[in-house]
């Protein structure tokens, strides 16, 4: 089940630089750890995070096994037009989560 916490302003002045922060529940299993039975636990990480503003990509990162569980992402964007910011996480085991927030630019 998708479990995300997002912190972003609901309104911004045109041209203002805003910070968008997002936290997601995910084990970020490295693929290097042996389980209790001695065999390696399969890798299960988020591989990519992207953010779009009204459909245009504004931010993207590739995540690695060295990143801790429940990754927290923070980035900055210039507020241009009112609309929707969509945040997408994708990764191993078909992991796909998308959350959207509305921002009004005045």
């Amino acid at each position: 089940m998708a479990n995300v916490l997002i912190n972003a302003p609901k309104t911004a002045r045109r041209g203002e630089i805003i910070e968008i922060k997002a936290l997601i529940l995910h084990p970020m299993e490295t693929g290097f750890r042996p389980g209790t039975n001695g065999s390696i636990i399969a890798r299960n990480i988020i591989e990519r995070f992207t953010a779009t503003w009204n459909g245009d990509e504004i931010f993207r990162i590739d995540l690695s096994p060295a990143i801790a569980a429940n990754p927290f992402v923070s980035f900055f964007a210039v507020a241009t037009d009112s609309g929707t910011v969509s945040l997408r996480w994708s990764g191993d085991e078909g992991f796909q989560v998308e959350e959207s927030i509305a921002i009004t630019v005045e």
Partner: peptide
């Protein structure tokens, strides 16, 4: 202190 940065809040939500 930040309710959207504290990973414990993900569990409160669950």
């Amino acid at each position: 202190d930040d309710g959207t940065a504290n990973p414990g809040m993900l569990f409160v939500q669950l």
